[in-house]
Amino acid sequence: MNQITSQVRHDRRSDTHDGIEMASAATDLVKVYGSGATAVRAVDGISVGFARGTFTAIMGASGSGKSTLMHCLAGLDSPTSGSITVGGTEITALRDRDLTVLRRDRIGFVFQSFNLLPTLTAGQNITLPLDLAGRAVDDAVFNALVASLGITHRLRHLPGELSGGEQQRVAIARALIGSPDVVFADEPTGQLDSATGHGLLAYLRSSVRELGRTVVMVTHDPIAAAYADRAVLLADGRIAGELAKPSAADLLAAMAQLNTTGAAGRRVDTVGA
């Protein structure tokens, strides 16, 4: 804990860094919204990699560019410049159709507002990515997954009939069912009470540690981010620092420091050393 790390280098476009296989990586990523005087550089030259089997939190205040970064990494939004790889595949040049298939087969999503399809049952929501791909559902995998999430008895219900926590468990099951290269979670606990939120975060951490999943989570909540192996701090569209095995207190302090010093391009590599 509390150890300062700078193990991620940003100078190579590759899915491996120092022999570590990257599930997702970005190099010199820029995303500009608008043009001319009103242009906003939401992501301003970020290079970052996420090793397989790790749980990373991307932290930052509102407007720091963390959601935009995630959308670009996940192929939901196209970057203005820079390179993005998913499991070694360069995705910035992909056509929409190929990108869609890549999202379907190799990326899992968990959103703050659950984002389940209201017309499908919980079970149907979980298998949707496989159904879209025309892949068969492995019953053993499915049963183990829903059992581990404790939603076996809710599978026939429509999302509207589930509690927030249950809906988010369904969303996590949907994200994991296809064994994607990387799962992106956008404020997954933002609309849950703290007890439910902790349960979910613990589950995500265990899925990384025990099943070797890769999870990238965007959050502004230091307590949530403390579940991650590593935290990447963002400010004004740039990486402002990184913490390995952070505690909530470290993160809170780092965030506070970002806020007081003003972030503009500053790195906070040595928090709480």
């Binding site: 939901l76 159709r97 869609t100 298939v101 379907r104 999503f109 879209l132």
Partner: peptide, 16 residues
């Protein structure tokens, strides 16, 4: 709109 976007995110192609 949101629902369509979600489906697209989950892998529903434009044509689909």
């Amino acid at each position: 709109t949101r629902e369509s976007a979600l489906l697209r995110a989950l892998g529903l192609r434009r044509g689909q």
